[in-house]
């Protein structure tokens, strides 16, 4: 019984330490913004950062080599057939690109911020595949709450033990984004 209590306390302590570590992770520039799924939402990320007077480079189809010198990677998940068509790639190729990018970010210890701003229009189907892929390596999530009506992001953040910031409208995502870098 005493052993059980001690183990429980130890696990709680470890969880607390991990969460704290994630939250206190340092976010700084240079910032690279990219898409996961080629939706046009990624362009709004640039506008949100601009609102906070934050410099960032947006490469919609960023590759592992684009991470050179980058200190924070912001990924905007959302699937768009139109976007993929315009980029001339398939969903599988896009997923592979994202996986390689995220793998490299992890190797370089670059923190990844998940920024989901498309609401319900960027949920379900292939959008969810990209969301899950990005969430798996994210250290912070900012989500327009309409996209979290079914609690997917709450669940993913809990699983990943990272902070989830929900905002009611797209323009309001600028504030938590700004705070991260201040």
């Amino acid at each position: 019984m005493r052993l059980f209590k001690s183990l429980t306390l130890l696990m709680l302590a470890l969880t607390f330490i991990t969460t704290q570590a994630q939250e206190s992770k340092k976010y700084e520039g240079p910032i690279l913004v990219t898409s996961a799924g080629q939706s046009a939402d990624v362009k709004l990320a640039g506008l949100l950062l601009k609102k906070q007077k934050l410099e960032a480079e947006t490469i919609t189809m960023a590759k592992a080599e684009d991470l050179k010198g980058v200190k924070t990677l912001i990924v905007v998940p959302g699937f768009s057939s139109k976007g993929l068509g315009a980029a001339g790639i398939s969903a599988d190729e896009e997923l592979k690109r994202v996986q390689e990018l995220l793998k490299q970010a992890a190797e370089l210890k670059i923190p990844v911020v998940l920024l989901h701003i498309g609401g319900k229009a960027r949920r379900q189907g292939q959008s969810d595949n990209f969301i899950k892929e990005v969430a798996g390596v994210s250290s912070y999530m900012i989500v327009v709450e309409q996209g979290n009506e079914d609690g997917l992001f709450t669940e993913l953040a809990k699983k990943q033990k990272v902070k989830l910031e929900l905002v009611s409208k797209i323009p309001l995502a600028a504030e938590p984004l700004g705070k991260l870098f201040k």
């Binding site: 046009a40 939402d41 362009k43 959302g78 229009a121 960027r122």
Partner: peptide
């Protein structure tokens, strides 16, 4: 609706 919201997002430019 959901369709129009998605199309607006897809056609921002």
């Amino acid at each position: 609706d959901n369709t129009l919201a998605g199309i607006i997002l897809d056609n921002l430019e």
